[in-house]
Write a protein that binds this DNA or RNA. Structure first.
Lengths: 250, 250
DNA sequence: CGAACACTTGACAGCCCTCAACGTGAGTGG
DNA sequence: CCACTCACGTTGAGGGCTGTCAAGTGTTCG
């Protein structure tokens, strides 16, 4: 029996709400814990740490730069953008976080969050006190290993888009990576909604919004992509993958 | 009594060699362990994991992309460069690792190292089996916490140079960050040797080698810097820090 | 001493940013 | 229902930063 803890977010990507005895199926931790053969008691230890948060609405902040770091959170539904504002007032987008992904990891080293996290649409979160989770990780090798891997993965991910790639390659890499992450959660890989504004994509890819617009138009003219406002369809996926290959190292 | 396990690397930055009972004073782990009040037995547990490696010479690889991941390593002396080669044969430098810093963390998520690591000069390492270290981390909360922080720190560091900064800002940020890291290990902050080639700096900063050369020349003309081959002196440190500020978020 | 390599310097071009104007769609209030 | 507003997105013109290409200089090492 599934007893939602919060109202369902209409029209937004969400898998399930979990309940008192089960984790959300898309939870960043459930897989790790189940596959590591945790016993029921151990699983329950982790489960009681979960604090469901939400729904947050577009523009609501999950945390702000400088807030005291206490918890990491797994996105359960919606999209979260992490960003910083530089001294000139320019926004730098650090990442977009989809259901099943974890935010707040970069705050572990320090007392405070080093960036802002804002909901781009209706967002539901599973919040975990990090100190408590660390204590539990010492008792559950599977959980510890999973945390290490999550952290390690983000190091590699951050290095990805850091290369000096052309606007075309960066845009293609963004689309392919977004598609792959959606597919991993069971959503359609070739037709999906971009939940963020062009400006956000631009600030993430280190491009001007105008350049994002122009590249998307050219992709469409060349027949790789169909764009309708924020909805995209990857028609010529092979070509996009070829462009993205060097960036994503695939 | 200090009984070196390996010949000292002449002329290269090195603090001490550690011995059977003590860690190297610059070791990435010793601080954490000591400050967490580990008992002697615990400290010894960690100590027996250490495997001293070296000396490696310029051009020797610590590991190569695709090698099976087994261990992380703390640099004890010298400089290690991590890099990947893209399909077009271009080299992308992911980072430079100075004494006291740890390499291999990005490999934790996966069976194999995702990049190459090569010695730029004479390098000494302390090698730690990661599986064994993880087991120990479950017993030593201080060690676990330290590992989490090391990983978290690298996420933030990777995001730093990812921004779209001018060549001047990137170069200044590189110099200031390098200086700060040297200073943290007790070396001179304002006069030091760049242990890597201009091309390496360029591949790290996503610039052409010619641009690196031109920016350094201009910095010198403007009186912020004195450059003699690979030796640099930060004369106008304030101005460099001002340039680097937005990049380093300081 | 010669060769290979690292580095520097200059000329030129191209990618992408900036600036500006316009189009478009969603939400709002009359 | 419609006009209005405003944010978002698109399109065009022009320029600047930095990459590319080429040549020359300096240094190291066999």
């Amino acid at each position: 029996m599934n007893q939602p803890a919060f109202p369902r977010a209409d029209g937004h990507i969400i898998a399930d709400d979990g309940d008192q005895l089960h984790f959300c199926s898309t939870c960043a931790f459930s897989q790790a814990c189940l596959s590591e053969g945790m016993d029921k008691r151990a699983l329950n230890d982790l489960h009681v740490l979960v604090e469901h948060v939400g729904p947050l609405h577009a523009g609501d902040h999950v945390f702000r730069e400088g807030d005291r770091f206490e918890a990491i959170a797994a996105v359960r539904a919606g999209t979260v953008k992490t960003y910083v504002i530089d001294p000139d007032g320019r926004e730098h987008v650090l990442g977009f976080h989809l259901p099943g992904e974890v935010i707040g990891l970069s705050a572990i080293d320090g007392e405070h969050y080093p960036c802002n996290a804002v909901a781009l649409d209706t967002v539901m979160l599973c919040r975990f006190s990090f100190p408590k989770m660390a204590v539990l990780a010492a008792k559950l090798p599977g959980l510890q290993k999973h945390l290490f891997r999550l952290l390690s993965r983000d190091i590699g991910r951050a290095a990805l888009l850091a290369g000096d790639w052309s606007a075309d390659r960066r845009m293609a890499a963004f689309l392919i990576a977004f598609s792959q992450r959606l597919a991993a959660r069971g959503f359609s890989p070739n037709r999906f909604q971009l939940t963020m504004a062009r400006t956000d994509i631009a600030n993430y890819l280190r491009l001007a919004p105008e350049t994002v617009s122009r590249v998307l138009r050219r992709f469409q003219q060349d027949g790789f992509l169909v764009v309708d406002r924020r909805e995209v369809e990857l028609v010529g996926r092979e070509h996009l993958e070829e462009l993205a290959g060097p960036v994503l190292r695939q």
